[in-house]
Design a protein around this nucleic acid. Sequence first.
DNA 1: TATGAATGAGTATTCATTCAT
DNA 2: GATGAATGAATACTCATTCAT
Lengths: 190, 190, 190, 190
Amino acid sequence: MARPLSDEKRSAILLAAAQVIAEHGTGGPISKIAKQAGVAEGTIFTYFDDKDALLNALYLALKADLAVAFRHGRPASKTLKARVQHAWERYIQWGATHPAQRRAMSQLSVSDRITDDTRQLGAKAFEEIGATLDEVVTTGNLKGQSPLFVAAIMESIAETTLSFIAREPDAADNYTRAGFDAFWNAVSKS
Amino acid sequence: MARPLSDEKRSAILLAAAQVIAEHGTGGPISKIAKQAGVAEGTIFTYFDDKDALLNALYLALKADLAVAFRHGRPASKTLKARVQHAWERYIQWGATHPAQRRAMSQLSVSDRITDDTRQLGAKAFEEIGATLDEVVTTGNLKGQSPLFVAAIMESIAETTLSFIAREPDAADNYTRAGFDAFWNAVSKS
Amino acid sequence: MARPLSDEKRSAILLAAAQVIAEHGTGGPISKIAKQAGVAEGTIFTYFDDKDALLNALYLALKADLAVAFRHGRPASKTLKARVQHAWERYIQWGATHPAQRRAMSQLSVSDRITDDTRQLGAKAFEEIGATLDEVVTTGNLKGQSPLFVAAIMESIAETTLSFIAREPDAADNYTRAGFDAFWNAVSKS
Amino acid sequence: MARPLSDEKRSAILLAAAQVIAEHGTGGPISKIAKQAGVAEGTIFTYFDDKDALLNALYLALKADLAVAFRHGRPASKTLKARVQHAWERYIQWGATHPAQRRAMSQLSVSDRITDDTRQLGAKAFEEIGATLDEVVTTGNLKGQSPLFVAAIMESIAETTLSFIAREPDAADNYTRAGFDAFWNAVSKS
DNA sequence: TATGAATGAGTATTCATTCAT
DNA sequence: GATGAATGAATACTCATTCAT
């Protein structure tokens, strides 16, 4: 093994891709990504077969990051609401502190270059949080709906919350709380 | 070009643009739009200065369409909830019957080619519905939040609802109702 | 029809392609072809779908040119040998006066980018001369062989003749005669 | 690199190069050659200075192989025709049993990456057979022509013969004989 | 010496925009 | 005004070659 593929370099490329895609959409040029990552254009293709592969890998990496944020320091016991709120705050915090990744994610989400397989794989990372939402579903106002629908609503309200935080960072706490209230009432009020 | 000859042609171009952008994103080629619209490529530039102008015009046209759908047959009197629910159903119906436009809209929403001016102009079309949401804000669970935030939450839950309807058209009624419940609980008094 | 596709321009591109391919093989860059033809790179793709299409079109154009040369001023009556010799001389003359085309042809002949369909189409242009070779086959030393084999031998000896003429232009007449003698003896009755 | 470690590796590279070039022309990638040869890409450059060097070396190796085939089991005495025919049959047999090498050879022959020096060096390998052809020249119908011309005609008819054998392997014997008849009459008939 | 990751110049092709008709 | 051919900058991707391991 002459020079092993560097995980560091791979990460740098993914980070750079997130930044470029956040700013220019999935049409953002590979050349910009390469420059941002500090590697040659060609190097990108030793780590990813083609641009679509990079895009899909980035989607998964972002989902994985987010899932880690979710799990981080989660209180095992406590009420259902407390646990959901904790997860919510983690989610919002991750998004607020990773604006490029968040914008990249919303670009990728609406892109037809992300395959269905990738989307399903990405969803797997959230199975754990899904279990928590299952509880919500069995008790709350959305009784009978699929947990996927509940999760999607959470994601969309969180997304909205984050876009307002991005515009008014000083009101972050306010929006974090208001967003959670909206979400919690949306799914749990009887 | 004070006023181009044919409004019909302008509309055809906008419709074609929505279809192409729905399928290929904002990177969809002008040539495809022209073919779809049944006009020559060059003609597009007699109606729109450049591609960005077309994109922004499309954004506004879609917002306007949506606003019309909102207003259509809106009951002047009745309870607040009934009025909001009516608007909600119009919104969902428009989205469900205009899938290309809806997808185009979500592409345009995350694109940096839509200027802030355009976004503000687009928001104006919703001032009327905004007035209704004002009422919700003053009385509901999100008291003290800006109506814009409430509107954005409505939009995001509607968007989520529509994406589930797109995947399971037979369950349209179910999702329409569940989506509205979620939204109404999210924003109304607890 | 805004500006009709120009046959002149198409020919200029084919001529330029022949020259570039003669010098650099089928790997010769489109950019060089464009410059040589005096058109923009992009223009080439309004006349040919892609490089392979250009290559195949060039193959056919060269075959057609050659076939025209064959037919030009062919004596209808006279002995079989006189007619074959006349064709031979035309062939050689065309090759000697079109060195780029000739070299391009030999590059294209061994390239796998020329499809079988194209090769068959190219062969059609030679059906007329084929009829003459049929006579040779029925009477000559290669009795029982397919006229295609005889034609191929003619082509290969002609090709060899031309490559020697290219290196020693002063001896053109000598090689033209010697080449024909070789060919005629090869295929005619002993 | 006076003499690299392994002659085996060098041969493997040349064989792989022949196969790749047969299929993809001289533009075939080094990476494919390396994989086919079972060595790393970089290794190729310890055996050959650059791609052109590899190409030229391959040209010479193929010529040498062919020359060996010629010489193999050649009857020292016997008539001129018998000796020429024997050589012819060796040539055809080599070509028929080494299709990749043969195709590679025709690609290399028309490539401008093979230098004149290399071509002359390659011709040297055939001096011996050249001596035999000298005899043909002094007695046959091509009296006064250079043996090089006669050799070239032999090569071209052999090439044609081989391409027909490649397409109709069952008729190999027929074409071998017919090709030789054509060649022998071409050069010896008075 | 052997390896294969890293490089960046080079390639075919696309596409918004211009302009001759 | 309408057309679509012409343009050339921009893009994803390839590949010979270098060099750290």
